[in-house]
Computed example of a mutant assay.
Amino acid sequence: MNASDTHDFTFADLFAGIGGIRRAFEGAGGRCVFTSEWNKFAMETYRANFTKDESRSDHSFVGDITGITPRAVKKHDVLLGGFPCQPFSIAGVSKKNALGRAHGFADPTQGTLFFNVKEIIAAKRPAAFLLENVKNLKSHDRGRTFEIIEDQLRDKLGYHLQSRVVNGKGWTPQNRERILIVGFREPTTFNLNTLDLPAPESGPKVDKILHRKGEPLIPHDAGRYFDPRTGRVDPKYTLTENLWTYLQDYAAKHRAAGNGFGFGLVRPGMTTRTLSARYFKDGSEILIEQRGLRPRRLTPRECARLMGFPDDFIIPVSDTQAYRQFGNSVVVPAIVDVANAMRPHIVSALAASSDRVA
């Protein structure tokens, strides 16, 4: 997917990952002029899907955002960023606690990246921004973490701030709650909390994203994941006997202890748990039931669909890297709806301003 030559606004894509947020805002009339992503494998996927960036003089691509000053960020109308969530996620906090390590803003690396975002907003003063993170950001450290974010963006920088927890289950068959933080530099009638978004209970089921017999062959997948003539998924995605035994024993042990830990076995008419970046390890949170066989993992293409990426999205990396990338991404159609709702307010703000980026 590439931006057209005409656009209504420009944007910077920070912590860009594989470009899920970018796809949504390009579809809403935006043009990306600045991208930052530090992971080389995510950059490979991003570049494979936004190929014209390399020859565009109005686009800059940098790696680690901490390695440049806010002044070096290209001027833009809208700032977008899914800043790293591990310091605030439930799983991330539990892991860090177990290891005796800091989390949240006490994390000496990832936790400080919000402040890089804040400094860029302060330096560039975009007309609007959208930030995305895990639901737990709002309750982390008894709400103090989110209070700091609000204080920095609203009280220190003067942006009109709104936030809302959105569940991707309204668009794809996955229970995935994320917080969206929207800010406008000037007063606006935009209201994130009253947007009419699909209800989670009315969303599609997992059969909509699974490979099936007769499915059109995706040229850039080259039969990598399944055989469309038979509908048979490559056997390598079926759990080994040892792994399946281990997962069952692990779940039984935790059930006996009164804990809720265990694998997530999914049938076609169900929805899945949240796809995580650790999915490559054992696939335990989302296992597809197979009649007469052990369960299997989703293929990377099915993960792409679970996140709302269309089949023309190119997956140039290994399965391990693809699982990490989709587990870290956004539910694209959810961001599409929010981007489309923000668009007229962005355009209106730029029309009333003298500093629109051409």
Rank of each mutant, 00 (worst) to 15 (best):
R71L: 04
R71P: 06
R71C: 09
R71K: 13
R71T: 15
R71W: 02
A72Y: 00
A72D: 11
A72W: 01
V73K: 14
V73H: 11
V73W: 06
V73S: 11
V73D: 09
V73R: 14
V73E: 09
K74R: 15
K74D: 11
K74F: 04
K74E: 14
K75T: 14
K75V: 09
K75F: 01
K75H: 12
H76N: 12
H76P: 13
H76R: 13
D77N: 12
D77G: 03
D77M: 07
D77L: 04
D77T: 11
V78Y: 04
V78M: 03
V78E: 09
V78N: 09
L79P: 15
L79G: 09
L79D: 09
L80D: 01
L80M: 00
L80I: 03
G81S: 06
G82Y: 05
G82D: 08
G82K: 06
G82A: 06
F83M: 07
F83H: 15
F83S: 13
F83P: 12
F83Q: 14
P84V: 11
C85W: 03
C85K: 13
C85T: 14
C85P: 09
Q86C: 02
Q86Y: 01
Q86V: 07
F88I: 04
F88S: 01
F88T: 03
S89M: 01
I90F: 10
A91H: 12
A91W: 07
A91S: 11
A91G: 09
G92D: 05
G92P: 01
G92I: 00
V93D: 00
V93F: 00
V93Y: 00
S94F: 07
S94D: 10
S94N: 14
S94Y: 05
K95M: 03
K95H: 05
K96Y: 00
K96L: 02
K96S: 04
K96C: 01
N97T: 06
N97Y: 06
A98L: 03
L99V: 03
L99S: 11
L99T: 07
L99M: 08
L99K: 14
L99Q: 15
G100H: 08
